[in-house]
């Protein structure tokens, strides 16, 4: 056993490195491709080493847009995606934490019925209810607007369930102590429950931000104007050009840019998340 230890460790490390290579190579390739000139990619002679067009390509991508079409610059798309992802994440958290609070801490008629109704919506993601949702959004004049992009995606059973489970682990005595300390329902929520949910909110924000950022189907339907489209849609539209050469460096630069915000969110929030996990406060 002991003498095998060294070999086993090398094998384990080798497997891990192989895994990293498999995951990282396409990303590397995208970054490299975004620094080459369009012609060398197009004729299949792309170098695996970074080229010299980094600043030029990214400037063009963010501020100018693809030359062959009337596409908006990616800067606008980035902003649209950011607004949508942030609105979905914040909106989902706000709505679900409040509804979980109502379901856990208040006794009202049909409380469990309402809880189960929320639960059932787990079975109805956007893809399933896409036609009625589109119809409602269109009737409410929400096409090509941020409200149309975000509102239909905000109601979330998952987040409500998560907060409900968390609230049920908060000791009842805290609520009772608050009542004796003269804190009403809003005070208790604001002063006690919200600070205690901080780590849950952080974790959920990461998941929901990425969920919002990666939305494809819904933005594709709801937006038609170029200045309202999100970056995920933008990449797709850039690739299919009917009458001109696909500008691969720009596409790759867009892909890299589309990856960055989720990465930043994960890195930043993970610190908070881990810190929250370490200080177990209950």
């Amino acid at each position: 056993m002991v003498e095998n230890e060294g070999i086993r460790r090398y094998v384990a490390h080798a497997i891990l490195w192989l895994g990293i290579a498999i995951v990282a190579f396409p990303v590397y390739l995208a970054i490299v491709a975004s620094t080459q000139d369009a012609a060398s990619i197009a004729n299949g002679q792309m170098s695996l080493l970074p080229g010299g067009h980094l600043i030029e390509t990214y400037y063009k991508t963010i501020f100018v847009g693809t030359s062959g079409s009337t596409r908006e610059p990616v800067g606008v798309m980035l902003m649209n995606s950011l607004v949508m992802a942030l609105a979905i994440a914040c909106g989902k958290i706000a709505i679900s934490i409040i509804s979980a609070y109502a379901v856990v801490y208040f006794r009202f008629p049909l409380r469990m019925t309402i809880f189960w109704l929320i639960f059932i919506t787990l079975m109805l993601p956007v893809e399933v209810r896409i036609y009625p949702t589109y119809k409602i959004a269109a009737d409410l004049q929400l096409l090509d607007s941020y409200a149309g992009l975000t509102l239909p995606l905000i109601a979330s059973a998952t987040a409500t369930l998560l907060f409900r489970q968390f609230f049920m682990t908060v000791p009842d005595e805290l609520l009772e102590a608050s009542r004796i300390d003269g804190a009403g329902p809003l005070r208790f929520f604001w002063d006690t429950l919200l600070p205690l949910s901080r780590t849950n909110i952080a974790a959920l924000f990461v998941i929901l931000f990425i969920y919002g950022w990666n939305q494809y189907l819904w933005p594709l339907l709801i937006t038609t104007r170029d200045d309202m489209q999100t970056i995920v849609i933008g990449i797709r539209k850039m690739i299919t050009t009917s009458d001109a050469l696909t500008e691969w460096p720009v596409v790759m630069a867009t892909a890299v840019l589309a990856m960055l915000p989720p990465v930043v969110v994960v890195v930043v929030m993970q610190k908070l998340f881990v810190r929250g996990l370490v200080e177990t406060e209950k």
């Binding site: 009772e176 600070p195 406060e281």
Partner: peptide
């Protein structure tokens, strides 16, 4: 309270 019920945060 038995478990003190101090506000943890």
């Amino acid at each position: 309270f038995q478990n003190y019920a101090l506000y943890p945060h």
